[in-house]
Each structure stands twice: as C-alpha cells, then as structure tokens.
C-alpha cells in the first residue's frame, strides 16, 4: 500500500471543509471495505484519507413522515437487522442481508456503498426501485439527488469531489404494493450477483392490474439500470406469462453487461430476462398479500 496522510475529523463541518480544501487528492473512507482493497492493490494512490469514522449521528436509521432515512454511516448489517426497516421496507432488509457476508456487512456502510458505485452491488438496485433519494452535503450547502440520476458510469456518480453522501431517503410504498429483489448466484452463495433484479409492483385494488411499477437491473451495465420500457409494458396490465416474457425481453434490450467469471455478457443478458419475470412474480404476489 502507498502511504498517505490520515485525517479523522470529529464533525461533518470539518470533513466538508477538508474535502473542499483537498479535492480529488483525498479519498473518503467510511467502512473501508472497497477502498482498502483498492489501496492495497495500489490501484489508488491518494495523498490523504479522510475518515468519517469519528462522526456521530449520521449512522441513524429513522423514519419521518413515512420516509425511511438511512444515515450514510449506518452499516449494512444495521439496516438488515433494523426493526424499523423490516417493518417499513422488508425488501430493503432482505436486500442488505444478501450482500456478501455478515462480516463485510458489519464494516461496509450505506453511504460508502453508494459512493463506491460498483455496478455489481445489491442495495442500489433495490433502493432505485424504491425511488430512493440521496442526500449530499458540501461546504457550500446540501442537495438531494434521486438515485435514478445518481450513477453515471462504472464507479462514477454525480457526487462532486467536495461532496459527501450523508443519507438515503426511502419513501413509504403506496398501499397494495409489493417489492422483491432477486439475486442470481450460480456459483457460490456469497458471490456478487451474476444479475440482480429489483421489482416493485403497485396494483389497483379493484381491477388487479398493475398501476405502477419499477424494474431495476443490477450487474448488467455500467450502473444499475432502470428498465423504463419494460415498466411501461406492465402498467395497466395483468401479469401473464406472455407479458412477463415481453417485459423480460424489453429489460434485456437495455443491458450491456461485462463478461467475467460470473458469466459471459450473453448469459447475463439472458438471465436478466429470466429474473425480471421471477422478480415481478414475487413482487406481484406480495402486492396481493
């Protein structure tokens, strides 16, 4: 590992001031699970590391006006085990529980995993399907970005060098809504997904047709992909095998996967279709429940 200066401010203000001062020369570290590997492999050689580990109060998991607020420093394990999350958004707890291993979830943080923007991660896929928003802060003020607009490219987000992810907001789902996250793991059970699909389906109670939906694909593009064309096919419809086939095909169109040890690009694309259908099925079933 290359050497660097380690800073550990006590307050958010100090962090933001430092960020403003050091810009791209510095890297932020929270849980460190992704960053430390990249440092160790010498893919990154920052001059400074700004640690968030002494910050207090941005690790809270709360709810206000029906919106779930996840502090950026909450660990993945904290979200997974939070009674509040389990109650308000069981699919979110399920998704966090599927990330890697318990040990890693004890270290990795909500904000860190978003900022790292590895397209193979699980939580951003579900969060995007749940219309989550990201809170960002800098010395010059704060802003909110829809997760939909958050990711740009492999490991790239709209977060500016002087900004910090502070929280994630997840609105309460409408009634008669069901959500599911399916992670395809053809090799071992703690692998990254070959493909991950999150589906959220809201039904009209009387007609039973799909009133609204979200479909998000993970691991098959440079960022999590929102499959809008596929969503449109589902809206106003009842689920049939033929429709799911068409929805899956529309979702497949959107993918541009990288072939790796978890599957070729072609296979990942094909599996997207399969898991879109399965995720919708499960979400639909939950919407009916």
């Amino acid at each position: 590992m290359h050497n660097f200066e380690y800073r550990e401010p006590d307050t958010l203000e100090e962090v933001l001031a430092l960020l403003g001062e050091l810009g791209e020369e510095a890297k932020i570290v929270a849980g460190g699970t992704a960053l430390v590997i990249m440092l160790n492999q010498r893919l990154l050689v920052p001059s400074h590391l700004i640690s968030l580990r002494k910050l207090r109060d941005i690790d809270q998991i709360e709810s206000s006006d029906g919106t779930l607020q996840l502090g950026a420093l909450a660990t993945l394990r904290a979200v997974e085990t939070s009674p509040l999350v389990k109650e308000q958004s069981p699919v979110l707890a399920e998704t966090y529980a599927q990330v890697a291993t318990l040990r890693l979830r004890n270290m990795a943080t909500v904000g860190g995993s978003l900022a790292h923007a590895d397209p193979n991660q699980d939580p951003p896929v579900t969060l995007m399907a749940l219309d989550a928003r990201v809170g960002l802060a800098s010395a010059n003020g704060s802003r909110e970005v829809a997760l939909d607009e958050f990711f740009i490219d492999y490991y790239e987000t709209v977060v500016r060098p002087d900004e910090l992810v502070t929280r994630v907001m997840v609105p309460r789902a409408a009634p008669h809504t069901g959500s599911a996250y399916l992670k395809f793991l053809p090799r071992t059970s703690e692998d990254y997904a070959t493909v991950g699909v999150a589906a959220r389906v809201s039904l009209e109670p009387d007609s039973g047709v799909c009133q609204d939906c979200r479909l998000v694909l993970g691991g098959v593009g440079a960022t999590p992909l929102r499959a809008r064309d596929a969503e449109d096919l589902l809206k106003g419809q009842k689920s049939t095998p033929e429709l799911l086939e068409a929805v899956g095909a529309a979702a497949r169109q959107l993918t541009d996967p990288v072939g790796d040890s978890r599957g070729s690009a072609q296979y990942k694309r094909a599996m997207t279709g399969v898991f879109v259908g399965r995720a919708i099925d499960q979400a639909w079933e939950r919407a009916l429940a």
Binding site: K27, M38, L43, L44, A117, D153, Y154, Y155, E156
Partner: peptide, 9 residues
Amino acid sequence: VYKIKVGPI
C-alpha cells in the same frame, strides 16, 4: 501521454 479514468482509478 494518454489518460483514462475508470471511476476513482
């Protein structure tokens, strides 16, 4: 000189 960026790298 040729520069290429992959996320933080």
